[in-house]
Every structure is written in structure tokens, then in C-alpha cells.
Design a protein around this nucleic acid. Sequence first.
RNA 1: GGGCGGAUAGCUCAGUUGGGAGAGCACAGCCCUUACAAGGCUGGGGUCACAGGUUCGAGCCCUGUUCCGCCUACCA
Length: 888
Amino acid sequence: MLDKRYNPKDIEKKWYDFWLEKGYFKAEAKSDKPSYCIVIPPPNVTGSLHIGHALDITLQDVLIRWKRMSGYNTLWLPGTDHAGIATQNVVEKALQSQGEDRHRLGREKFIERVWEWKKLYGGTIINQLKSMGASCDWSRERFTLDEGLSKAVREVFVRLYEEGLIYRGDYIINWCPRCHTALSDLEVEHEDVKGKLWYIKYKFTHKAGYITVATTRPETYLGDTAVAVNPEDRRYKDIIGKTVKLPVLNREVPVIADEFVDSSFGTGAVKVTPAHDPNDFEIARRHNLPFIKIMTGDGKMTEEAGPYRGQDRFVCRKNVLNDLEDLGHLEKVTDHDLAIGHCYRCKTVIEPYLSKQWFVKIKPLAEEAVKAVRDGNVKIIPTGWENSYFDWMENIKDWCISRQIWWGHRIPVWYCKSCDEIIVSMETPSACKCGSSNLAQDEDVLDTWFSSALWPFSTLGWPEDTDELKTFYPTSVLITGFDILFFWVARMIMMGLKLMNKQPFDHVYIHALIRDAEGMKMSKSKGNVVDPLKMTDAYGTDAFRFTLAAYAAQGRDIKFNEKRVEGYGHFLNKIWNVARFISMNMKEGDRVLSLEELRSGDVSGRLNLAERWILSRLSDICSDVNKALEEYRFNDAAGILYQFMWHELCDWYVEMIKPELYGDNADAKMVALSALVHVFEAALSLLHPVMPFITEEIWQQLPAKKDVESLCVRKYPDADTGIYDKDAEDKMSVIMNVVEGIRSIRGELNIQPSLELKVLIKTLDSVEDVLKPNISYVMKLARVQEIQIGSDIKLPKNSATAIKPSMEIYVPLAGLIDVDVEINRLKKDFAKTEKDLVFINKKLMNEDFRSKAPKAVIDENQTKCNEYKDKLQGIQDSIDKLKKWGKE
RNA sequence: GGGCGGAUAGCUCAGUUGGGAGAGCACAGCCCUUACAAGGCUGGGGUCACAGGUUCGAGCCCUGUUCCGCCUACCA
């Protein structure tokens, strides 16, 4: 017997260990079964589970468990990402608190320290995934710095280099002065700020007067090597080719003409700082201007900055402005909105910085990746994201992949110190072709996302030709948030196509971002983060998972509200209790008929309407749930199951069969119980992918015979699990109408629930034929003591009336209620129905409607119209009679 | 600057090809009916942001407006 209450804590670990022990999560490298594979978006190895992971994990686990139960050879491949900058930052901070410093430690020692850190904390997030119930194949867990994956990285680098798709050069890149590394364009977060535009006067050298330039970064004027104007700009025609003098430094720079300059902005004259601005860099290349670096990698001013050398860039700005002001070189200052780039890891203001870096020539890769989506080889769901994808891909710029940090895949390039030869190689070379062995490896490591881009095939063993690759590549679907669509998804598609000649996955399901209940982005600094572990602690993992699935409607952010988890906790309790109910009414060893027996000739005739109906409904929802999952409508799947389990199975079916269960007709009891067990087991199976723990616990405890060892590997129900039976559903809706009609009278007229009523139903013979054999349901569910049915029933004196399609239900209430109350109730219903009738009549009278609308729609409206008319007539009769009796 | 999404019951949201709007929670009334008060039954509650248009018919399609949110971008 189950405990009175469901206690998640006790059972979750038990079952997870059981599943692991049985090896259910293990994929077969070769199999006759169709394969289904998801690679996990690898969380940062130093991270801990946040609610976004929880959603991601839940959806993936739902799909994997569903497919596993549906007979697929499923592989959910887990792992973690070394997260170069983030991890290095974390370890550096830890070192700092111990009074250490990575530079003092040296590269090798430092990396050892990071590995130690990884050993200590790398398991945290993996254990948290397990606590969420994730059915990953842990025997295949990968880490981006594993030997195999590192080999893949080198292989890709060498291949792309040899094809000319990877190159090295001096360009302006995004530099984080805090992390001391280059970043790709994507790793810069732009924030809109209200800034200033400073107007600086540069004096002419050939005559009196000056030209004014406008800038948002006045300190960079120290590195100016020109002033540019648009060649068409009449104002400046005469001074093109002349020179101006930079204030303080007194350096002379030329005025040049370049199309890039927009005459309508600012003064139409632009200061050109080639080493500190990407546009200026391009201008400088066109005009052969010198590049003057005025800043170091720390964001401090260099020798070139003259009197400002050694100053921090922001201090320098202040000083420069003061000096310009004092010298009369500051013409004016205006407000100006601009977007300032920040490092996505440490939020430091990014500096455009000239340096030698490695790049991936990305256009050729992007073109193929665009094609794959356009041709439908990769399907992005919801499709709305395709636009963003195309937009980004079509305007893509070369990808800076070198990082000046230590934690990551070291770039497989060696420089010969004797002859300047560059050696790019899989293996560490021992000597240059010039004979020298004086080689030095490139100091930099690769962008973390370079290795993540290979994840779908590097984890399956590439570049080796493995069975896993043959079986599982391309993978089935990738589940992730839109925030890494470009960072990761797009790059995986490019790399997959390039190196595997096939897309890495058939589908990409992009899920929403989770916000707090007010719609604000969750962040540690705002203090509004919801800790998933607190949710699972308070309500159980299953309630939390169900909530996330129920929230996961496509194309909308999730405003997470804990109340909803609480609500679904109630749902678990409901399921728990119906399980208890079954246990109470069933003994171990009681005979339970299988579906085959239930539908076989000698039993099916003994099925009551209740059984036929619930089996039919099961059939309906089985196909609905499978379809919803097929289309990634997780919220619909959850909603359908919630509705079915609670409101159809518990509220109706269980209540309908209580007389059989409590009665002494053993055969009837067996039939009812068999259907109940069958439907309940099917419902548990359907729910299992969403709430694996409670369903397993309940199912294991059911006194019914088990067909398999675990729900985990039980066949996922399909439409065949039930018996579709339209006749039963139609008949049941008649019964429900009667019951609801009577309950409605009880409820609205405040009749004691304990009072057993007498009821009369005036109806057609055909409906009578439905009601008569099933009248016991009505009597039980509506608490009716005596019932009369017929086409010639008359409204008894002082009765309440409920009108339903083809039925008038009378409940004599002499002495129980105030006649006026009932009249008012009827009048309300009358008014409502009348409104409906007027509307529908107007429609039906419309010639255009009659001639242009489809026949089915017209018929439907006509039927409704007749129903309304009948109903009004019935209500009016009742009102008239009540009034008449009132006067007597 | 460009692009995308959202606005539906008090709250959070569903609403598949256009055929008079649904759920959960919250609220109100009645019930401790032997699975469940974390429950049962009943009920109230909506000009589907605004203005036009297409259509016999619009929450849904088209145009415009307002207000939110997001992505993206080298106007110094």
C-alpha cells in the first residue's frame, strides 16, 4: 500500500540508481533499431545548474525517454565544456584569494591548477543533471579538452589552414583589457548608453583657423594620423591635402578625402585613429596612413601618448578633456546615444585593438550553412528563428579564433626562429625543414566555441571512423536557447557540413528564455534567480519538470512563477491518490484483463459505457500526445495529460465505477478494474518522460502484473493502446449533459449535496434508449434517488429545469426552494441563449452567408439555431408554469 | 539604423489551415461524500491593445498607430 502522501525525496534517488544499474540509458553502437540521438549542449565545467539548464535538460529528457520507450536506440550524449575564459577567470580569482598569481605560477603550473579545479568542481553540474533525472548515457560522457576531442580540434585546424580557410594577420579585434585577450564579435555585448560627443578643434598649419572633428572617444585623438572628409563635401574642398596639428602633441596629420565619411554627421570631418577603430583601420589601409598604438593590452596609455603615458584609458580621457578645454581646443559637447561594447565574461569595456590574430575565413562555410537550412536539411523550430539565422549568416564576418589565455586548445602552429617558417601540424614537430630545431609553439589557445562547434561529431569519435558516427550522425535534434544560436548552433552547422559533409542535426528546437515572474531577465546581481534545486527540494523533481514542460510553449519567453510549480505538485498528489485508490480496491494477484482480453468478443460485450468511453478517450489522447511531442509542443503534451488524468480519469471514470468496485458482482468489478488499471498504466507511461520518478514509483507499486522491469523501457502507448469508440463518446456526452444539468441546479439553487433528488427527463425515444441502460451513472454522479424518462413527461409543479440538447431535465423541488429564485435563474439562462440565437439567426438570414459559406458550416449553424430555439421554448414553458403556480 | 516577437479573464498563458474564445491559478457559494480539503461540485468574470482594410464571416490574413520585450549594427 502506498503511503498517505507522496514523498519525492525518498524515491528519486532509488529509481535513478535502479535505472543506471539496469543500464537503460546506454546506447548501442550498432543496432537494428532506428536510432535517435541528442548531444547535450555542454554546460561549463565549472558551472552549476541554473533554471535555463533545467528547462533544456527537461525537454531533452522528455524526448529521449519518449523515443526510448517508442523502441528507438537512443543516445543522449552528455558532457561539459572547458569554457576557456570563464574557467580561467574563476581559477585566477581563487588563486588571487590565496595571494597567488598565474604569471608568477607560470603557464604549466597554472594549467595544472585548473585541472585540479576541474577535478574538484567539474562533477557538480553533472550530479545536478542526474538529480534532474537526465537519462544520459554516462558511459559516453565527454569533455571538450579530452584527448579525442583535442585531436579533432587539431585535425580541423590543420585541414582548414591547408585549405586557406584559416589565416593569421594584423587586424582590429575586440580586446578585453581585463581578460587580456582578443574576443570574437559575438563575445562583445553592446549596451546602449547616453554618452557625449566632443567637438575638438585641430588648427590648420597653412593658415589661421581650424577644422573641428566630433568624437565619442576623445583620448584616441592621441593616435590620430589623419582627418578625413567626404570628397564631395564643398565645405572642406580646399583643405584636402593640407595638414592640421594635433593639440598638445603637436603632431602634423593630413586631411584626406574618403567616401566613408558621412557629411551629415557631426561636422562632416572625422578624426582617423587607425590602430584603435575598425573603420579608421580600413581608411588607413586605403590611404597608407601610419598606425600608432597609444594603448597597451592593459588599457594603459603608451609612450605615443606623450604626457599621458602610463595613465589608465579612462583617466586619460578625463585629462585629455581638461587639457583640450584649457587650451581652447574643445568647441562644444553634445549628448549622444551610443552602444558601448563589453566583455561577455567580465563586463569590462572592450577596446578595438590592433593585433596579430588567427581568423577563420567564414563566408564559404556560411554559404553552405545557409543552404542547408534553406533546403530543409536542417529544420529550425520555431521557424521564426530562421530569419535571424539567415540575417546573421549573410552578414557574417571572419571569425577571430585566437585567445591570449592559457586554458584551452593550444593553437597547433610552430614558428621557426631560424628561418621564420610557419609549421601547422597535427603532431608536435621536432625540426623545421631548414634543419633548425629552434621551434616555438604559438602561445595562444583557440576560442572555446571552436571546439564546441565540433561537438556533434567529435563526441562520437571523429576523426576516427567509428560505429557511433555511423549510427548516430547526423543527430536527431538539438535543443537549446536562442542566446547561443550564433555562438554555437550556426557554427556547428558550418563545421558539420564542412567536415562531415552532412548537417550535424536534422532539427534544431529553440526554446524560450526563462525570466522571473515580472518578466525581468534573471541575474545574480538582480537577485531574482530561481534556483532549480530549491524547486526540486520543495516540490519534487517531477513537479518541477512538469512545470517546465507545461511552460514550454513555442515562441515566447517564460515568466517563471513558483506558484505554478506548487500547482503541479497538487497534480502529483492527485496521481498518487488515484494510485492509492486502485491499491485499496485490488489485491495482489487479482485478475486483470489485458487490452486484448478487454476487446475480445467474450469480454467486449460486457464492457459498460464507462469502460468503452475511457478506453476510447485513451486512444484519442495517445495519438494527441504523440503528435504533440513529434511537433515539439511540450506544453500541449503536458496539458493533454493533465486534463485526461485529472478530469477524465479521476473525476469521471473513477467515480463512475465506484459502484462496481464496492459491489459484489465479481465479474463486473474485474472488468471495471481491468480497464482502470490498463488506462492508468497507459497514462503513467505517457507521463513518464515528463515525470519519470513518481510514475515509476507508482507503477512499480501497483498490484498488477508487470510486463517489463521498468516503466523506463515499457512500450510508449500509441492510439492502439485504447479502443476508439465514437458511439461510446457520443453516449457519454449525453450522460455528462444530464449529470451536469442536475448538478447545476443543485449548485445554483443551493440544494444540500446529501439530499437525494427525484428527476424527470423529457426527451426523444432515441435519447431515452441511451439513458435507460446507463441511468445508474446518472443516479450515482448526480445523487438521484428516482428517475423517470419519456417523451410525454410533463413539468411537475414547483420544479427546477435544466435544458440540454434534446432534453429537458426537471427536478421537483416543492418546499425546497423559492420559486422566484428558480425563475430568476431561468431568466438569466434565457437571456444568454436569446443573445446567441439572435446572433446565429442574423447569420443564417444573410443571403451572402447562405450562398458563400461551406455547407457544413451552414448546417452546423442551423443545428445550433434549432437547439437554441428548443431551449428557449423549454425555458419559457418552465417560467410560465412556475409563474402560474406561484399565483395559485 | 535594421530586424523579430508580444499585447486575449484579476494573474500566467493556450488558441494548429479564418466559422461567436479556452485552461491553470486566483475569486465566490455549497460540501470533511470511505483515493485525494494539496480535494469535490457549482458559479461569476473577456469591445481578443487601437484605427482602418480584405471576407458572407477576423483573436487569426493585410496596412497603419501606440506601448512593452528582445536580437542585430563600424555614424565617428
